[in-house]
């Protein structure tokens, strides 16, 4: 069999699959800049009118503020809980470690609708429904695995002798962790926190139940508007979410670059 023909077929197949992966993203971005009134692709012309529509609509603005607060709190909770857990899992011998790992990760494979109804039924008697903090508490459960996985990965890649050297030179062990190890693994923690933020910003079902009435986050607003209207405002809101994602992705990439510079 001809090796070159093989490579050509494989390359074409992979290119086609990648096109299939990114085409929906391109479509939404293109329509958000449409000058037309309808969701047509390709759009008839270029304009920023749908972005102006969002900036001028207090409901959309408040939805974005809710999403930012929610994602920020989720990332904060997930980081405060996940980083210590990663230290324990990587550095210590723990009985039933496999079970603990499964417990930390299981929120990721639990169907969102199940988490949504159980969280709502639990939150109503506690008065946590309609609360951004309450929803962030629930989102932190599924955001935490991202922090634990990324922190653990950085932690495994660091040289523990640096910390030992600090202790030998008289530093308190806890101080050695804070001053020596934490700065080294910081990029891993940041990546985890960013992923937890994005996870929260994308989550729809728990958010619909907990914050479905007033003070909707962006995903809930997009979802409920999608049923009612069909103008490119939704595409522009989606594009802003994509922009947020790209911004966070850039944060991740620069954090990684920083890590690489530190390690060389």
């Amino acid at each position: 069999m001809n090796a070159n023909a093989d490579r050509l077929i494989l390359g074409t197949a992979v290119a086609a699959i990648i096109l299939y992966l990114i085409f929906p993203v391109i479509v939404v971005l293109a329509i958000s800049f449409s000058s037309g009134n309808f969701l047509n692709f390709p759009p008839p012309g270029f304009s920023l009118r749908w972005y102006r529509a969002i900036a001028g609509d207090p409901e959309w603005v408040s939805a974005f503020i809710v999403t930012l607060k929610l994602g920020g709190l989720t990332a904060l909770f997930a980081t405060l809980l996940g980083v210590p857990a990663a230290f324990a899992l990587v550095r210590y011998i723990i009985p039933a470690k496999a079970l603990l790992s499964a417990l930390i990760l299981c929120a990721l494979v639990t169907p969102p609708i199940v988490t949504a109804i159980s969280t709502y039924l639990f939150f109503v008697p506690l008065g946590l429904d309609n609360s951004i903090v309450g929803l962030a508490c629930a989102h932190a459960v599924s955001g935490m695995p991202f922090v634990v996985i990324n922190t653990a990965a950085s932690l495994r890649g660091t040289d523990r002798n640096l910390e030992r050297a600090a202790i030998i030179h008289g530093a308190h062990p806890l101080w050695a962790v804070v001053r020596v190890t934490l700065p080294i693994i910081a990029p891993g923690i940041v990546i985890g926190a960013v992923l937890a933020f994005v996870h929260s910003a994308h989550e729809l079902l728990i958010a619909t139940f907990v914050l479905g009435g007033v003070g909707k986050p962006v995903t809930v607003k997009i979802w409920s508007d999608m049923q009612a209207t069909s103008d490119p405002t939704i595409a522009a809101a989606s594009a802003i979410l994509i922009g947020l994602a790209i911004l966070t992705l850039a944060t991740v990439v620069s954090a990684q670059a920083l890590a690489r510079r530190r390690s060389t």
């Binding site: 929906p24 969701l39 692709f41 910003a201 729809l204 999608m226 994602a245 992705l249």
Partner: peptide, 15 residues
């Protein structure tokens, strides 16, 4: 695409 919301990606196919 992993960084783009599932609702948004689904919506795109609608168009």
């Amino acid at each position: 695409p992993y960084w783009v919301d599932i609702i948004v990606r689904t919506f795109s196919w609608l168009i």
